[in-house]
């Protein structure tokens, strides 16, 4: 199962959420977050622990603290001790509020980290959920080159040495943007959306055989790169095989299954003298049309059928006159 440690959550969002650690910093790297949902433990504070979602981050805001204070010291300490004994991953206090009564000592006793943010509770919850959804989404790494062509994320795959990097370089030269070369991290954003990005500081570098390692951002400028993009088209480059049946019409669509998401795929035979970058540009534009409901081959077919009917009708009309 996917998870992140509370430490990772803390380090990634420390400045964004104006977060700091109140206690239990030594447990940050041991505690794991496995779900993107977030809980406000109102019912637990009232003593109702059935279905208590201990695996979620527990958020304490103004409402929770006001209620705790109303409970009185003795009752509050009892219920806080019970909440912290549930092995929750971490506690977050919003609006820079000061925790009442034995809040911190109960957390310490059960080894639960407590973080403090200056954000309002609802703001924090929505921002944290967006972050966690992305972090906990299914992911794989794919070997290939990922380029943004006219706003369409085109994932170019194929055997090493087939020329993926060279073709991408030509696309960049023609004004398109490099997302990543070689290893691409693909994240499933939803059941029908994938996002691809590079994986480290080498993201916008490429290795071109004969030249060496080049830095695309420095060479072509910041407009020639982007950090991430949705994956909308897969281009599979392969050596031209004589006699193999390649797509001629584009009526039937084939798909590549990537972590359960079907992405339209084109198998592109490579042969000396074929200008593949132009073909990829055209394929990306065609994909845009198709995704907006226009299939050129189908439209042409409709027109041909209409035209033939008309022709036939005219021919048959002649003898009547």
């Amino acid at each position: 199962m996917n998870f992140i440690t509370v430490k990772e959550f803390y380090n990634d969002n420390k400045s964004k959420f104006h977060m700091r650690s109140l206690s239990g910093e030594e447990y940050l790297s041991k505690k794991k977050i496995i779900v993107s949902d977030i809980n406000r433990p109102g019912l637990a504070l009232a003593g109702f622990f059935d279905y208590f979602p201990y695996e979620r981050i527990q958020v304490f805001g103004k409402t929770e603290f006001t209620y705790i204070k109303k409970l009185g010291r003795e009752k509050a300490n009892r219920v806080l001790d019970k909440i912290f004994s549930e092995n929750i991953c971490c506690c977050i206090i919003t609006r820079n509020l000061k925790p009442p009564f034995n809040f911190l000592s109960a957390a310490k006793k059960h080894k639960i980290p407590v973080l403090l943010t200056s954000l309002f509770t609802t703001k924090f919850i929505s921002a944290a959920m967006i972050y966690l959804e992305k972090k906990l989404a299914p992911k794989i790494t794919i070997h290939g080159t990922f380029v943004d062509v006219y706003g369409i994320g085109v994932l170019i795959i194929g055997k090493s040495g087939i020329g993926k990097s060279e073709i991408s370089l030509e696309l960049i030269k023609r004004g398109h943007r490099l997302v990543a070369d070689d290893l691409i991290e693909v994240t499933k954003l939803s059941d029908d959306a994938l996002e691809g990005r590079g994986m480290s500081i080498i993201q916008h570098h490429m290795e071109i055989r004969g030249v060496g390692i080049i830095d695309i951002r420095n060479l072509f400028g910041v407009g020639a790169v982007r950090d991430d993009q949705k994956v909308e088209l897969v281009m599979h480059l392969e050596e031209w095989e004589k006699g193999k049946d390649y797509e001629r019409l584009g009526i039937e669509e084939i798909y590549e299954d990537i972590i359960g998401v079907k992405i339209p795929k084109i198998i592109l035979p490579v042969r000396p003298g074929r200008n593949l970058s132009v073909i990829i540009e055209v394929a990306a534009m065609t994909q845009r049309l198709k995704s907006r409901g226009y299939n050129p081959a189908k439209e042409l077919n409709k027109n041909i059928i209409k035209w033939m009917k008309k022709e036939n009708k005219e021919k048959m009309d002649v003898p009547d006159k």
Partner: peptide, 13 residues
């Protein structure tokens, strides 16, 4: 992360 042993960029990643 898994990289191709024959790719420099992959190994650097």
């Amino acid at each position: 992360i898994e990289a191709d042993g024959k790719s420099i960029m992959g190994l650097l990643t």
